[in-house]
Design a protein around this nucleic acid. Structure first.
Length: 402
DNA sequence: TCTGGGGTCCTAGGACCC
DNA sequence: TCTGGGGTCCTAGGACCC
């Protein structure tokens, strides 16, 4: 698109690392750089990232490891190193903040930047984008792509189109002509289901969606979703950022889930897994100083049907035994309703999080709960000092999973 | 060896209150 | 007494994203 980009109206950048997990893992394995490489995809797992040589075989992130290996048997499989990803991500975000404080970290490998104030120092948004790409490559030896536009969603679309290792500027006057020929599925927030729904009434392109009356769209997708999609189709979504760092963003819920290596219907095994997951979630909550009131479980059966059950407690908690007790109670109710079936995955999530300060529990039911809370803190302390998993609930000592 | 694990937001219906 | 509406909370499920 025309780089008529000195304008203030075109100053949102979306920066997206190219095949982030794979690129980072390959920094230490240069000999593999031109070979097909996938990250993740072990037993019952999916591909987290595939480098570009692997993508040439049709391998995509999200597909099962089995399918990936079928497409590309010679692919080298590496295990993800999340600590490394987080370190690299933080460094990259710091690089962004040297350009502007208006950085909205979207995920480990993506961020939005508002560079409207950086013009004088670093030039046009296009020049800023090129500077950032060069800087990231110098510092991290990984490439990224940048979309430049007047709104968040158009910038995001543009960066995808720029991949790999490129820049695309979509100026406001070119937005409609750029957007309208695209498949609706390209829009941010339009997934497989919504796309199929739109297709059923003959809406194929973004332009098709833009031209149908708003009430029709809202009737199909709901009030808020319909209005949002309409905005996306005209490229008129938000253009202001809320500066946010992924590491200090207060979360609204915290959860943990795990797929069993083999499906099981054994309540003892399920209960133990619920305890393990409850401990994992609540220790993260305590580390973050958060408590929550709603406990939710997720059960996925062998046939992949997935059910959730939740219950809101009278008082917020971060106590492992209370979360586990509620999780197991929800599970028993579910078994009573749905019967005993083989289970593939269980999950525990605590919602409605709020800071613990100011939400001190009353002691009406008192002493017992207080005792558990103190035990949890002792576990946390030992974990920090001697390593995670050194101290754990007695029920988890024997019968650890194979 | 079919389909992970971490999240967010929206919808819809019912309860309950004003 | 009847009728209606709005707002909020809770629960279950669905869709989507990285």
């Amino acid at each position: 698109m025309t780089p008529q980009d000195g304008s203030e109206a075109c100053s949102i950048l979306h920066v997206d690392m190219d095949a982030f997990y794979a690129s980072v893992m390959l920094r230490d394995r240069p000999e593999l750089r031109d070979e097909p490489v996938v990250i993740g995809g072990g037993h019952r797992g999916v591909i987290l990232a595939a480098n570009y040589p692997a993508r040439r075989f049709g391998v995509r992130s999200g597909m099962s490891g089995r399918d990936a290996l079928r497409l590309c048997p010679q692919a080298v499989r590496l295990s993800p190193d999340y600590r490394l990803f987080e370190r690299v991500s933080s460094s990259v975000m710091e690089t962004f903040r040297r350009v502007t404080p208006l950085v909205e970290a979207y995920s480990l490998d993506e961020a939005f930047l508002d560079v409207s104030g950086a013009g004088r120092r670093l030039g046009t948004p296009l020049q800023v984008a090129e500077w950032l790409r060069a800087q990231v490559f110098d510092e991290q030896q990984i490439t990224c792509s940048v979309g430049v536009a007047g709104t968040v969603s158009v910038a995001k679309l543009a960066s995808r189109r720029a991949k790999p290792d490129g820049v695309l500027v979509v100026t406001p006057e070119r937005v409609v002509e750029y957007l309208h020929p695209l498949d609706v599925g390209e829009l941010f927030g339009v997934g497989e289901k919504t796309r199929a729904k739109l297709l059923r009434i003959g809406l194929v392109t973004v332009g098709d969606v833009a031209r149908i009356p708003l009430p029709t769209l809202q009737q199909m997708l709901g009030r808020a979703s319909g209005a949002h999609l309409h905005q996306l189709a005209w490229g008129t979504d938000r253009s202001s950022l809320t500066p946010r760092r992924s590491d200090d963003d207060p979360e609204r819920s915290m959860g943990a889930e795990e797929t069993f290596s083999r499906d099981t219907a054994d309540p003892a095994v399920i209960s133990r897994e619920l305890l393990r997951l409850s401990a994992r979630v609540t220790s993260r909550m305590r580390a973050a100083g958060m408590t929550g009131r709603t406990v939710a479980i997720r059960i996925r059966y062998s046939d992949f049907t997935t059910l959730t059950r939740s219950h809101t407690l009278a008082d917020p908690t971060d106590v492992t035994s209370l979360v586990h007790a509620e999780a197991f109670r929800l599970f028993e109710v579910l078994v009573a309703q749905a019967g005993q079936r083989r289970i593939r995955l269980v999950g525990v999530r605590v919602e409605g999080l709020r800071p613990r300060a100011g939400s001190e529990r009353q002691l009406a039911l008192g002493e017992r709960e207080r005792g558990w809370a103190e035990a949890d803190r002792a576990v946390d302390l030992a974990g920090r000092r001697f390593g995670r998993g050194v101290v754990k609930p007695a029920a988890l000592l024997s019968g650890d999973r194979p």
